[in-house]
């Protein structure tokens, strides 16, 4: 729901089994797995909101 606060943010829930090529490209082996900006950041597992924010912040600095 991070996407709702800023029009520059787009969030997709991707069904990994239906898009295996995409899942493989990002080496998704467990779910949930969040990919930020096509691999600039990765968050594995269900994490607190603040961890996700930190990961987005890091990814944007790359």
């Amino acid at each position: 729901m991070l996407a709702m606060e800023n029009p520059l943010v787009q969030a997709e829930m991707v069904e990994a089994m239906e898009f295996p090529t995409l899942a493989d490209r990002h080496q998704v082996s467990g779910v949930p797995h969040t990919v930020i900006n096509d691999g600039a950041g990765n968050v594995v597992g269900a994490v607190p909101e603040s961890n996700l924010v930190a990961a987005i912040r890091d990814a944007l600095q790359k």
Partner: peptide, 12 residues
């Protein structure tokens, strides 16, 4: 945030 952020949450 002033540049595009694309989040893809993989689920099953």
């Amino acid at each position: 945030i002033n540049k595009p952020v694309h989040l893809q949450v993989f689920v099953t």
